Simulated assay, not measured.
Amino acid sequence: MTEVEITADGPSKGEFRDVMGRFASGVTVITTTLDGEDLGAAASAVSSLSDEPPSLLICLNVTSTTAQAIVKTGTFAVNVLAEDSAPIAQRFASKAPDKFQTIAVERGQTGVPLIAGCIAHFECVVDETVRGGTHLVFLARVVRVSSKPGNPLAYFRGSFGRMETAPDAAALHAVRDYVVGAVTDEAQPLDAEAIAAELDIEVGRAYQSLVALTTEGLVRRTGATFQVEPVPDQVIFDYYAAKLAIEIGAAAQTVGAVGPDQLAELRALLEATLEYSVDGQFSDPEGWIRANNAFHEYLVGLAGSVILTETYKGLRLPAMEQRAIRESTRATAALHDDHRAIVEGYEKGDVALVLRTLTAHAKRPQETRAEAAAAAGLVS
């Protein structure tokens, strides 16, 4: 067995806190009541200890008034905050004199306050208290639990955020596509239950996805209701700027370096896009969007980077294109000409032609919007 020498020189306080900050955790509020006064403190240091009997441990700074109250009462509750509860976490992490002002609470079995809207509550009785450095560690039996559906508030690198599991991510992508496709130049109401039914996902995930999309500016929330907001043109143009950056990088690496089979597939994907337009108009807009997306994803995929391809897919461009195509049927000729020039550039090994065409291609949404505005008489 290799012996490890432990020296007195460990990480500094700042180094330790910085590295620990890279450990993402859920956020809770520890609450108790003493002599008729409710007390609480935000805490992320909460851990399951045992399931026989059900037990957990929490850590609070020894100077915390909540910690000192728990020492005297021997009871507390762990309130697991929902992902939209950052203001509550900030309040209980502060030195505010009356943290419970405007906070809705219920009374637990032991009389401790339970914060309404949390996704879980644990009511606890202290079995043992241990001093560890600057903190008190309370080992406690859980005497009552409750929970409801929802995602937890997360804490990482000094900021609050949301935890996203793989199913949540898939639901979020699907709802984002739905919302972007529903965008018009006027606000429209959104029904979480209807969206869930149409997309075949759980209502809770549809609801949480709409909450998440409020941070992107796509959705506005008023109480329990949502509406899709008109997406500013600049947001759409920013998406296409990101698309261009990825495609330019992929093309710069791959033009002149791909084999005949890959060139043949790229041309086949080009030809597939032609099937969805007739006489300069989109005969099947949704079919064209799928074919166009397949063409561009294949181009990016030529770089051979899974990460790059997944980043490109993450832009969710097909949903954005629904809006542009809905507003113009005159862009098909330019789009097809661009595709032909890109394929010809690949076949000739002409990187300058491909990069120049990709740059022009990325400007087509702006041209389409300008055409739509002119047709509506919004510009002279």
Rank of each mutant, 00 (worst) to 15 (best):
N79L: 00
D35F: 07
R131Y: 05
F122V: 14
V78M: 02
D38C: 13
A42H: 02
K99I: 02
V80M: 15
Q90S: 14
L81G: 02
Q109P: 09
A104Q: 14
V27G: 01
G21S: 09
I70D: 05
V46M: 05
L49W: 11
V78G: 02
L39S: 05
L39Q: 05
I115R: 01
F76I: 12
S25R: 07
D18W: 10
Q109K: 15
V142I: 13
Q68L: 14
E128D: 13
G14P: 00
G133S: 03
V130F: 14
P11A: 15
P87S: 03
N61H: 11
A93K: 05
I58R: 00
Q68T: 11
A140V: 04
S25G: 08
V145D: 01
P54T: 06
F92D: 04
T65S: 13
P53M: 08
V27E: 00
R131K: 14
T28I: 06
V46R: 03
K72R: 14
Q90A: 13
I103P: 05
D98R: 12
S147V: 12
A77N: 03
T66P: 00
T102C: 10
V142R: 00
T32V: 03
A116P: 01
V29R: 04
T33H: 09
E52I: 12
C118I: 08
S94G: 08
P113I: 00
G10D: 02
G21H: 05
T66N: 00
Q90V: 13
D18P: 00
L114F: 03
N61C: 10
A42G: 10
C59A: 15
L114P: 01
I115S: 00
S146I: 08
F23C: 14
Q109A: 15
G74F: 04
A82I: 10
K13W: 09
K72Y: 06
A93S: 10
V125H: 09
S147A: 15
V130P: 10
L56S: 07
A42V: 11
D84S: 12
A93V: 08
A42L: 07
T129F: 08
R22G: 13
V27K: 00
C124F: 03
A104T: 13
I103L: 05
T63P: 07
V142L: 03
P97V: 07
V112L: 04
A41D: 07
Q109T: 14
E106P: 06
P53V: 05
D84L: 12
G36N: 04
E123P: 03
E52V: 13
S64A: 09
A41M: 10
K99H: 02
M20Y: 11
R131G: 09
I58M: 05
A120P: 02
E52Q: 15
Q101C: 09
D38T: 13
G117V: 00
I88E: 04
T73A: 08
A41Y: 00
A45P: 08
S55R: 13
P11N: 14
L39I: 02
T134E: 13
A43L: 04
F76H: 11
D127F: 07
A116Y: 03
E128K: 15
P87T: 01
T28L: 03
L60A: 05
V125E: 12
S44W: 01
